[in-house]
Design a protein around this nucleic acid. Structure first.
Length: 116
DNA sequence: ATTCTGACAGCAA
DNA sequence: TTTGCTGCCAGAA
């Protein structure tokens, strides 16, 4: 059918939510890692897009644990207050200085490796 | 229907 | 090395 309405519930977004919700406490990952895990390595933008609408989701999505591959809190501005994301991460043991995750590699959590 | 944008990432110059 | 463009997919105007 032409009008096959894609259900967001079973879409790329949902996968992003699943993976994101699987991120353990005190761990972080990158958009690219998630995108790669989903099969589209270069569709990292979609991951960010999904997280953008994740706040509409009923479940709490630890989107603050998802940063770009540089370990920079690029999406901190989308958490209401610019400090919310940083606060949450710092609260989980992530060391952040000037929006940069110092122990990024240390706390990095790869869905493709950790999750299966 | 077409165009632009978007919480990225990779590659080229 | 740094800067900039392109690719990716989906949604909004």
């Amino acid at each position: 059918m032409l009008q096959v309405k894609k259900k967001i519930n079973d879409d790329f977004f949902s996968k992003v939510y699943q993976v994101t919700k699987c991120i353990p406490y005190g761990r972080i990952t990158s958009y690219g890692a998630i995108a790669r895990y989903l099969g589209s390595g270069r569709s990292a933008r979609m991951v960010g897009w999904a997280l953008n609408v994740s706040h509409i989701n009923q479940e709490f999505i630890p989107a603050h644990r998802v940063v770009n591959r540089n370990g920079l809190l690029t999406g901190k501005h989308h958490f209401g207050n610019s400090t919310t994301m940083e606060q949450l991460l710092v609260n989980e043991g992530i060391i952040i200085v000037n929006d940069w995750i110092i122990n990024f590699e240390e706390k990095f959590w790869d869905p493709g490796t950790e999750l299966k």
